[in-house]
Design a protein around this nucleic acid. Structure first.
Lengths: 208, 208
DNA sequence: ATTCGTATCAAACACGTGTTTCACGATGGA
DNA sequence: TCCATCGTGAAACACGTGTTTGATACGAAT
């Protein structure tokens, strides 16, 4: 069970990812992670230095996946007109967010990072959020024929982002408000259609 | 300093409110609260039963203030047409939210409640959020001439709410993205104007 | 004057935390 | 075969936590 086989590190990292996402950094204990991963308490210290080192590694993984989401959104809009690029962005984002698939842990993790910011949040902002806003800003600016740094463009970007993010952020709240909500493809498509149309109309009005 | 004078309880409650809002329930210690309030550690146990009792009292206060915000938004739209009622709602909300005034602690508190839901969150949903959504739903339904429980109406309400909430929720993120942001009246009015126009256009498009 | 309930205080309690230490076994190269 | 290194294990360490306890002082009612 020991030796070259470095499965313990992987197992610990996996469990840590799930638990950190679910309850944040502070509310998860090293002991609990190791217990669920069938590893010794000292494993996290040996493989990751300390608890924070383990957390940083989990967060780095999250950043990689988020950058990948941005790239996919860009790719799906490739060659299309600006309004369809925006629709593609919303579509990719919602599919990745609402689907309780293998990526949902990321957004729970980000939720906790926003509630209790750590220095690592800066990395997320610089590497993920800023590129996304830049891309959306270019789209909006193209649609309304305004400079990308115009205030009105910035505000429209916020409006689009906020609608997308709301569907993931307020998850525990939304579940209480509409307990019969299902994340099937039909619902996702309907939300994509709504946010796209709603936003495109709003964007058009921003240019006067 | 002791006797009929019940200032300790008030002082503890005040400090607890500020600290719980800033760092959430778990990351604040009873000792720290009492130290800042110049009270003994046992004070919280005597006056509030235990730490959770103190937290519940803080959260109850928050619910009262939020209900008051809803009432004010309703009042400012009284007698106006539906689209101006919506503008009034956005205006009241943003003024209360963006202003770093005496109410900002509430939204930090809610942020932490959403990130780490406790049973008390149900109370917030039932007493604050549901009435707000009901009110906004009636406004939207009136504008687009659809039944209040129509899916399209519900989605528009979510779009409006998400834009308003985004300005308060992503505060630590927004501060990094646009560090030169100032919460003066001009900015608030500009955002109110943007969200109102953006949303009214989007709502109009929802009815086809 | 005595009694009772209120409000506060310092000290201690019981528990859980992240981290460290030291020892044991396995692995792979010299 | 020997030895250095790696991965793991159980136990202990140092610290911080919420909570409880017993004592003290004060004011008001009896």
């Amino acid at each position: 069970m020991s030796g070259k086989d470095g499965a313990t590190r992987t197992r610990v990292l996996g469990v840590a990812t799930r638990l950190f996402a679910g309850r944040g950094f502070e509310k998860v204990t090293v002991r609990e992670i190791c217990r669920e991963a069938n590893a010794n308490v000292a494993a996290v210290n040996y493989h990751f230095g300390d608890k924070m080192g383990l957390y940083r590694e989990v967060l780095d993984q999250a950043i990689q996946v988020m950058k990948c989401t941005t790239d996919q959104a860009r790719a799906e809009g490739e060659g299309k007109p600006a309004d369809e690029k925006l629709r593609a962005y919303v579509s990719v984002f919602l599919r990745r967010v609402i689907k309780q698939g293998r990526d949902s842990w990321i957004h729970q993790l980000m939720m906790h990072e926003i509630a209790d910011p750590t220095p690592a949040l800066d990395l997320v902002v610089d590497e993920v959020l800023r590129p996304r806003m830049k891309y959306l800003g270019e789209l909006v600016a193209g649609i309304v024929n305004l400079p990308v740094d115009d205030e009105r463009v910035l505000r429209c970007v916020m409006s689009v982002q906020s609608q997308c993010h709301a569907l993931m952020m307020a998850n525990p709240v939304a579940r209480k408000l509409t307990p019969d909500f299902t994340a099937d493809d039909g619902q996702i498509d309907a939300w994509t259609e709504h946010i796209s149309r709603f936003s495109l109309q709003g964007i058009a009005s921003a240019a006067r």
